[in-house]
């Protein structure tokens, strides 16, 4: 018989190896990386030009440039879009047979989910750094919070995206249909994005939209990121982090349960 046999690696090794696998796959498909940064970049470019006249309206904080106002929102938004891609990535893994292979191995199913979540967080971090770089170099982003404040805003956006990624991984584990998730995800996010403080101050919205914006969690995430980057009195950062933690915990719980169901059903 064989001289050496392997009976499964440790939990951290499984997570590390699987995370590495996703990142390596990403590096080997540069087109995917390119398009994943293209979308937020287009948004940054268009919005910074289209909405720049908002700075002269009554509700806009006096003395602030629009790019300083916009970029923290772009960070949160990019992280949110990226979390949807995380769920879709899991569905694609399920359908192309790789997960069937993993399931026949002596590894814990939750490591597959954790690895997907972590590798996507790395990808998101890369996207966010790139957005900030473009903001600074091309569009004149000069936040009062400086480097530290900007990095803090990046960190917050990353945590929000990480938490939402658990939600979409959970949905993916139950729904298992990429097209459906893409459509519903977009339909849910698109209005959320505009009915918030992301692009214009809430005070400038019509009354009914104001009502939505005030209960929209995205408003709080964007405001928190903005307060960090712009060195405003920090509001809602603890709340945003705590909410993210709670969302992540619930998402992860349902993700693991849903993922346990057999693949071939």
């Amino acid at each position: 018989m064989a001289t050496l046999t392997w009976h499964g690696s440790s939990y951290p090794t499984q997570v590390l190896v699987l995370t590495g696998r996703s990142l390596r796959a990403l590096l080997r498909t540069p087109a995917l990386v390119f398009f994943s940064v293209l979308q937020p970049l287009i948004m940054l470019t268009l919005f910074s030009q289209i909405f720049s006249s908002i700075t002269s309206t009554a509700n806009f904080p006096p003395g602030m440039t629009y790019i300083n106002y916009l970029l923290p929102a772009i960070l949160v938004n990019t992280a949110m879009q990226s979390s949807l891609a995380s769920g879709i990535g899991l569905v694609q893994d399920m359908s192309n047979g790789v997960l069937a292979r993993f399931r026949s191995l002596p590894i814990r199913p939750s490591t597959v989910l954790l690895a997907r979540n972590l590798s996507d967080a790395v990808r998101t971090a890369f996207q966010l750094v790139l957005m900030i770089a473009f903001g600074v170099l091309v569009f004149g982003f000069r936040p009062d919070g400086g480097m530290v404040g900007t990095l803090a805003a990046l960190g917050l956006a990353l945590v929000v995206g990480w938490a939402l990624s658990w939600v979409f991984i959970a949905i993916a584990a139950w729904v298992r249909k990429a097209e459906l998730m893409q459509t519903v995800g977009f339909l849910a996010m698109f209005p959320l994005m505009f009915a918030s403080s992301a692009f214009v101050p809430v005070g400038g919205l019509p009354g009914w939209l104001q009502a939505i914006a005030k209960v929209n969690p995205l408003t709080y995430a964007v405001d928190a990121a903005r307060s960090l980057a712009l060195a405003h009195p920090v509001t809602g950062v603890v709340g945003a982090l705590a909410t993210s933690g709670a969302i992540a915990a619930v998402g992860a719980f349902f993700a693991v349960r849903g993922f346990r169901r057999p693949l071939s059903l």
């Binding site: 009976h7 499964g8 690696s9 440790s10 090794t13 499984q14 190896v17 993993f102 590894i107």
Partner: peptide
């Protein structure tokens, strides 16, 4: 390599 590492190599 991926499979081998997951198996504990």
């Amino acid at each position: 390599v991926l499979i081998a590492r997951l198996l504990g190599a």
